[in-house]
Design a protein around this nucleic acid. Structure first.
Lengths: 232, 232
DNA sequence: CGAGGAGTTGACGTTGGTCAATAAATGTGG
DNA sequence: CCACATTTATTGACCAACGTCAACTCCTCG
């Protein structure tokens, strides 16, 4: 196994404030893992034996109901932690994490969590800041689901994806990983049919461009108006 | 100001593992505050200057959208922390906390958070465990909103309230604080009309008993069947 | 080139929201 | 303590948003 270079993680928000030596020590305990497209990084309800950092690729975090319906909780982008059950006193993962494209992740044994948090307090604080952000995000999502119509929720979802994972192209902001109508439906609590109809309608109005497993936001500003419920 | 007695907080899950002296030291820094019914403990978007422990009463945590719609995020029962923005690196409260009945709370200055977490590590760990639980709860709520019909969501909400805040009576499990149809609607993302119709229908089937600002669950088991979507 | 996955689109029905009117319970001021 | 205002709840009529069902097309991969 090759030595992991500090530059892989230096500069990431989570590791802000750590010394070069600290980074090296943390990296020494990590192993780097490749995860093929559509494979799981970890599975819902499995024993939480490790926590992870996504180095490259995209991961979707999915909860499955007892009767098999799926809800996409969030997408993870490179540089983000995931599966940090230990930080929250859990011993199983609350959701599954699936590689959307081929990914590279760093994995640490879960029992190291407490050690790291004690040895590198800024790392602990930074992580809890992230947890705070995620809690806020999920609560916002609850509010959206409770108060908005499907059209607004889908518009908000696309804008979030574009912001988090968008790449500027000639056609506007391309969401730069494969995403199907079904995926968008599972993010917003609707059906692929409704998403398909919305995208078609928006394409006619010039707001988005979309194709097979791909969506670009052409006019973020007008889409935002829609998302906020002001008819245009 | 009278001295606060250790017995107020000893035995609460958050303070598990702390010595009597630790408790006394923490209490010495707290002030106890009475909050009248319908008054705010803290307000959404206000500077997070303190964190709180509910000693007595009931508090509802509410998010308000820009256009004035309200969503009830959760109810707080005695012994629970609230407004722990500091623990998550936030400097404003993400929601408002409103006393549902006359309440007594302990309040600590926010800047003490870091001190406490450092001085009493179990307190820190316990808190993050709670945060973990809340994150899981909110995520479950997202899944419910995305996959269940209104009838199931309302049934789930009532069962949660009964479990968290129920008192056994001749009529079944009484949710022991005033709660209106509108409140239940704001918990479940529906309208008071729909809640009213559901409660009437359930009352006819003998599942619940309800009146002005009051609901009892008579047959939790059958209500659970409904909540899980198995028609009966 | 064939099969399976992804997307589109029309027809239709249901859930649950909107609007409106009324009733019942509670609080308030004289 | 009563009259009146306010809040909470009920119920009916209506209808729109969106889910369901079904058929069909178009890619893409093997």
């Amino acid at each position: 196994m090759s030595r992991l270079d500090r530059s892989l993680i230096a500069g990431l928000p989570v590791f802000e404030g750590l010394s070069a030596d600290d980074l090296d020590r943390m990296l020494a305990a990590a192993r780097s893992v490749r995860v093929a497209k559509e494979e799981a990084v970890f599975e819902q309800d499995a024993a939480a034996e490790a926590f992870f950092l996504l180095l490259d690729g995209r991961v979707r975090v999915v909860k499955t109901t007892p009767d098999g319906q799926q809800v996409i909780v969030r997408y993870i982008v490179p540089g983000e932690l995931m599966g940090i059950a230990q930080a929250l006193g859990r011993d199983t993962y609350p959701a599954s994490a699936i590689a959307v494209v081929d990914c590279v992740v760093l994995a640490w044994p879960g029992r190291l969590w407490a050690e790291f948090a004690a040895a590198y307090p800024t790392f602990g604080t930074n992580t809890y800041k992230i947890v705070g952000t995620r809690l806020a995000d999920v609560q916002t999502q609850v509010v959206e689901m409770a108060t908005e119509q499907v059209e607004q929720r889908v518009a908000h979802a696309l804008l979030r994806l574009a912001r988090q994972s968008g790449r500027k192209t000639a056609d506007g902001i391309l969401i730069d990983f494969p995403i199907s109508r079904q995926d968008i439906a599972e993010m917003t609590g609707t059906t692929l049919h409704t998403v398909s109809r919305l995208l078609t309608a928006w394409e006619e109005k010039g707001l988005v461009k979309s194709g097979r497993q791909q969506v670009s936001v052409v006019e973020p500003h007008r889409l935002l108006l829609l998302a906020e419920g002001r008819r245009d």
